[in-house]
Nucleic acid binder design. Sequence first.
DNA 1: ATTAAATGAATGAACGTTCATTTTTATATT
DNA 2: AATATAAAAATGAACGTTCATTCATTTAAT
Lengths: 192, 192
Amino acid sequence: MNIPAKSEIKRKDLIRATIQLVNNNGFHATPMSKIAKMAGVSAGTIYLYFENKQDLVNQVYIEVKSAFTRYAFKNYEEGMEVEEGFKIIWKNIAEFKLQEVEEAFFLSQCDNSPIIDEAGRQEGLKHLQPLLDLWKKGQKQGLIKEVSPYTLYAFSIYPIAFLMNMQQRGSLRLNAHNIDAAYEMAWNSIKK
Amino acid sequence: MNIPAKSEIKRKDLIRATIQLVNNNGFHATPMSKIAKMAGVSAGTIYLYFENKQDLVNQVYIEVKSAFTRYAFKNYEEGMEVEEGFKIIWKNIAEFKLQEVEEAFFLSQCDNSPIIDEAGRQEGLKHLQPLLDLWKKGQKQGLIKEVSPYTLYAFSIYPIAFLMNMQQRGSLRLNAHNIDAAYEMAWNSIKK
DNA sequence: ATTAAATGAATGAACGTTCATTTTTATATT
DNA sequence: AATATAAAAATGAACGTTCATTCATTTAAT
């Protein structure tokens, strides 16, 4: 196990603080001074780790997005049957959004607003390639509807974000039973 | 035909400007001075129509949300068969999001961020009641899955917002054929 | 003793909001 | 119809605050 350098600890603290504050107040209503205070450093220190505020949130976005992707493809291998593979990935994503609430909420806020510039967004999109490949394979095998990957994503993955938001607001309580039902709906919508 | 008072024209101009600017820059990155300039009034004038900035976006939100709801239930009547009624409402919502892009984009941004305070959000939620009633009827008749209305919404309505965002970013081009396919996916996910 | 890391007060730009003043509109008087 | 007067609407410069960023100085590490 690597012992992280102190500087790396501070960087993580800053990222954690940014996520929390942006979740609660939004990007522009989150002053650098508060981020610094929450991370336990002084205002100027942020600029040793990040160029400026925009660079800070870009880096946070990319970091969280790739944590998400790592989580999404846990236990998944390319050789798998289409339905089995999809189920694993779907459940991973659901689990991430329920376990890592702060990070998931941050992502959904970024993905639905102009906070992140186009460069950061492109960077974040790449990572879902294995899922797109799986869908393509499923379409070749006649298992999955012949619609664009965006449409498949819209009906099978995107709804998870809504469920998470509702749970976050206390309007909904998700348990294993609910999640199984939701998975069935996702699969029913994309299967041929 | 009513001729709107001049003051009402200015109010509408301010609302239109707010939608456009918040869509492009986000709420906090949209100064009152720019809203005023785009609406063709001076900064101080805004405060004759709205208490303050928060009140402005709250009112914009409520106004756009109720325009959306009116659109959603066009040609719908309570006596209808469940599947027919759902199809009409679904297509209305899709049409709104494709025709009234600015307004739809504004709503999706508000619904995924802390811009709108809880009061405004509650106000906006009420309006979907007829759809919730229709779903309840469908569940009684054994036509629709026995899951919470949030879950039904997540899989059948919420995806439309994603498709619209992608079309807005040029990643996707929606035509009548696409939309029919998308409707099938929505129905497949919620039907029993 | 040298280098690197961190600090936090200072700076200047930008913002929301106010209000004394001006401009426009409506009403009354000749 | 023309003019005078009052009321309403609109203006935009000014105010106080907040913010991102900088940098001379201090503290810690090597």
